[in-house]
Nucleic acid binder design. Structure first.
Length: 716
DNA sequence: TATCCATTAACG
DNA sequence: TATGCGTTAATGGATA
């Protein structure tokens, strides 16, 4: 990359000299600098690049250190001229390139009143995600990878300036707007230079592939408008309700802790005495020894009669009683395995004793004498989780009673949305409805939720290509029961829910047991884990896997075809052409003729680093992961495309309905809809989900039914 | 003191 | 010798 021209505009005369050049640009990269990341944040400057060798930055507001606020650098007339100049350039035609367009489009709207989204033609973040699904997808990272090794230089300069001006520059809070305007402007100008440069590098890769171009035109780009809606609509939250919850749960956590301390006080004391005795010297010269001698102890005499005294002396010297921090895994382990002396249940990757809820759950069942305190531990953890991850996050993150969560179209490798900040909408507690109760529809509106019924099993049946599985849904059978019946050639049980000998009724546990098998095995689960999950012997687990694959030869064939394609192409495609890369499988095959991830074969044959990985074991792990990914991807990703297509169609077909998409949770779409439009919007979204261009490609029928409510708990 | 890593837990 | 897939957030503890 040759050194580009960068200019920070400081006069209207200079700005007007650029008019023709910018006006005539066929494509124009745009970026906004803002005073923050909130919904009400505003632009402090805009940069443009008509090519990858020029960037101009136009300040709208500059930071004044003395008064610690942003002021316009322009006279009133000049300010007006500059703003209308920007507006004219932005709205000229659909020619804008951005990086993370929904953000900049929103800022242009709130700061300059421009409905800017329609003028964007490309988003280099989406382009990159389409040609390479692996993160990072951030501008600086990509510029470093594709354009220049010094892509972070402008940011480093800006950072120094921000700090010099008394601003914060932390991972969680970067006060860009406090930087000197020249450095901020240079930084901004480089952003559009990079954006343009990335477009030049990456767009040809999409254009060169008929499949990728189709994916772009039919899913990736139209979905950007849905992302914009998701990120600008916002969700009403009941603040007084959440404040009440905070008070209640804080109180609960405190009283649980009091109760726990009371229950374990004696045992903790015994434990403390033992550890003091183990760690302390008791001689006539030691501190503890001398102290005991004043109470009649003599050196060498047993300590049994002096335990209480030892504890008292120890506590006096420490000045405090041992306090457990129940958020600390180390403390939890001490409590469970040292104080209560319960048996350890395995270790973490780093060799520490595991203290998960699953471990404690197991102990509850097996050691009734400790079950009370264990149950309190579990109860406390749950309450604490709800309090800090949801209740406090809502209270800290809302803007005037609304939460504007950021949905990211590039947040997953397979085309699902991710959701983050200030809270993640996609992991709100399902069974504990207290949180969802606080997410409400505005007055005069309702929330409507539609989720695809058993989406993953259906798509799995379709993709794996086994007719017996595909028939499950057209024949009204139960997926898991059907698998059990086929695995064991059972005539005793039926997979038909209305049959008198329905497996789900007569032998619930047998149906339950097929659950981890059905999708786990295709995605690469080994007998070891299946055995653990089902609490059976490894041999039994192996037999189950064999029976499963024998019952569905087409599934086994699909699993193998996936391997062959992945190692041959270096990627696998979903039915809509979305790709997942499998470079290690390809390298192993191309360079060493290794056909499948086998750690012994890899250890034997691979003697040099592969894709930068040296350790043969790590190479195996990576290749094995790629194979599991390749299989899972075809299903998860197609499911995502189906939901995406439904949302795209809904937005295209809704006309005058007052109905917006506020959230999506992988197989679910949530709308806020004006009362009188509830029926129409429900019907429309249902149709968009069950009948669209993608469902037509799929033989398995799709089902989605609306649930309406005043809050998220009702609309479920 | 900020940042990074490991662990845990919430969801599909 | 590691052990179905895709995520985000909070916390503690080690490190720089």
């Amino acid at each position: 990359m040759t050194k580009p021209i960068v200019e920070v505009i400081t006069s209207t005369a200079r700005l007007l000299e650029y008019s023709d050049l910018i006006s005539n640009a066929k494509l124009l990269a745009v970026d906004t600098e803002t005073n923050g990341l909130r919904q009400d944040s505003i632009a402090i400057g805009v940069s443009f690049s008509p090519s990858s060798d020029l960037g101009i930055y136009i300040p709208l507001l500059v930071y004044n250190k003395e008064i610690d606020s942003l002021v316009s650098p322009w006279s009133l007339e000049a300010d007006e001229l500059v703003r209308s100049w920007i507006t004219e350039q932005v709205t000229k035609s659909q020619r804008l390139i951005g990086h993370n367009v929904p953000f900049d489009a929103r800022i242009l709207k709130t700061s300059l009143g421009i409905e800017a989204l329609q003028y964007f033609k490309y988003d280099t973040q989406l382009i990159h995600h389409t040609v390479d699904e692996n993160p990072p997808h951030g501008l600086k990272d990509l510029a470093t990878k594709y354009l220049t090794e010094e892509a972070s230089a402008p940011q480093d300069d800006l950072k120094a300036s921000v700090i010099a001006n008394g601003g914060e520059w932390k991972a969680t809070n970067k006060e860009f707007y406090k930087g000197d305007v020249l450095l901020l402007g240079t930084y901004g100008a480089y952003d559009t230079i990079y954006t343009y440069g990335l477009w030049e590098k990456l767009w040809p890769q999409i254009e060169a592939s008929v499949k990728l171009l189709k994916l772009w035109n039919e899913e990736v780009w139209p979905l950007n408008a849905v992302t914009y809606e998701l990120n600008t609509t916002g969700f009403d939250v009941d603040i007084p309700y959440f404040e009440g919850l905070k008070k209640d749960i804080t109180g609960t956590v405190e009283s649980i802790e009091d109760e726990m301390y009371a229950m374990i006080a004696d045992k903790v004391n015994e434990y403390e005495i033992d550890s003091v005795i183990a760690k302390t010297k008791f001689t006539k010269r030691s501190v503890m020894g001398k102290a005991l001698m004043q109470h009649g102890w003599e050196e060498g005499q047993p300590l049994d009669d002096y335990r209480d005294l030892i504890l008292k002396l120890f506590l006096d010297s420490k000045g405090l009683k041992r306090k457990f921090n129940f958020d600390s895994n180390d403390d939890k382990a001490v409590l469970l395995f040292d104080v209560l002396e319960l048996p350890e249940q395995g270790t973490t990757a780093k060799g520490k004793r595991q203290v998960t809820a699953a471990v404690i759950d197991k102990l509850v069942n097996e050691y009734s004498e400790s079950s009370e305190i264990l149950k309190l531990m579990l109860y406390r953890s749950k309450e604490k989780k709800v309090l800090s991850t949801y209740v406090e996050a809502v209270l800290n993150g809302h803007e005037d009673g609304r939460i504007y969560t950021s949905f990211k179209q590039t947040g997953t490798t397979g085309g699902r949305f991710s959701s983050a900040q200030p809270i993640n909408f996609q992991n709100l507690p399902r069974d504990d409805i207290r949180i969802k109760l606080g997410f409400k529809a505005p007055i005069g509106y309702k929330l409507i939720s539609l989720d695809f019924s058993s989406l993953e099993p259906r798509i799995f049946s379709e993709v794996a290509g086994d007719p017996k599985l595909q028939a499950v849904y057209s024949e009204g059978l139960d997926f898991y029961s059907k698998i059990y019946v086929d695995m064991f050639n059972s005539t005793e049980y039926s997979a038909r829910p209305d049959a008198p000998n329905y497996l789900g009724k007569l032998a619930k546990d047998k149906r339950q047991q097929t659950k981890p098998i059905a999708l786990g095995i295709p995605y690469g689960m080994q007998e070891y884990k299946l055995a653990k999950t089902l609490n059976i012997e490894v041999e039994e687990a192996k037999a189950l896997i064999d029976a499963y694959l024998a019952a569905y030869p087409d599934l086994a064939k699909w699993m193998n075809t996936t391997l062959i394609l992945a190692r041959k192409q270096g990627y696998i495609e979903s039915k809509v052409g979305r790709r997942r890369r499998t470079p290690m499988l390809k390298e192993l095959h191309d360079k060493y003729g290794i056909k499948r991830p086998d750690k012994f074969e890899i250890k034997r044959k691979v003697r040099r680093p592969l894709l930068g990985v040296e350790d043969p074991l790590k190479i195996f792990i990576r290749a094995n992961g790629e194979l599991n990914n390749a299989r899972n991807f075809q299903i998860q990703s197609l499911a995502a495309s189906l939901v995406n297509k439904a949302m795209i169609d809904f937005v295209a077909r809704r006309g005058d309905l007052d109905a917006k998409i506020v959230s999506t949770v992988h197989d679910e779409v949530i709308l806020v809809v004006k009362d009188e439009h509830v029926d129409a919007a429900s019907k429309l979204l249902k149709d968009c989900m069950e009948n669209n261009e993608l469902t037509k490609l799929i033989t398995v029928p799709m089902e989605a039914d609306p649930v309406v409510g005043n809050n998220l708990a009702e609309a479920k």
